[in-house]
Amino acid sequence: MSPFLRDENGHVAMTDGEKDWLVIVTKEALKAISIPPLADQQRLISHLPSFIEIALFKLEHGRAGEEDTIWIQTDDIQDWRQARTQG
Rank of each mutant, 00 (worst) to 15 (best):
G10A: 02
H11M: 06
V12M: 08
V12Q: 01
A13N: 09
M14Y: 13
M14K: 12
T15M: 14
T15W: 15
D16C: 11
G17L: 13
G17Y: 12
E18C: 05
E18V: 04
K19Q: 15
D20E: 02
D20N: 05
W21H: 10
L22C: 08
L22R: 08
V23K: 13
V23R: 12
I24Q: 00
K27E: 11
E28C: 06
A29V: 02
K31W: 08
A32L: 01
A32R: 01
A32N: 01
I33D: 02
S34P: 09
S34C: 11
S34E: 12
I35S: 15
P36S: 06
P36C: 06
P36L: 05
P37F: 03
P37V: 04
P37A: 10
L38Q: 04
L38D: 01
A39K: 00
A39H: 00
D40R: 13
Q41K: 07
Q41L: 09
Q42K: 15
Q42S: 13
Q42F: 14
R43N: 09
R43L: 09
R43Y: 10
R43A: 12
L44S: 00
L44D: 00
S46N: 09
H47R: 01
H47T: 02
S50M: 13
S50H: 10
I52A: 14
E53R: 06
I54V: 15
I54E: 12
A55M: 02
A55W: 00
A55D: 03
A55Q: 02
A55P: 15
L56T: 08
F57V: 05
K58L: 06
K58S: 05
K58H: 03
L59P: 12
L59R: 10
E60L: 09
G62T: 02
R63L: 07
A64E: 09
A64D: 12
A64K: 09
A64L: 05
G65L: 03
E66K: 11
E66I: 10
E67L: 07
D68T: 07
T69G: 07
I70Q: 14
Q73E: 13
T74I: 04
D76I: 01
Q78Y: 11
W80V: 09
W80D: 03
Q82G: 10
Q82C: 10
A83H: 08
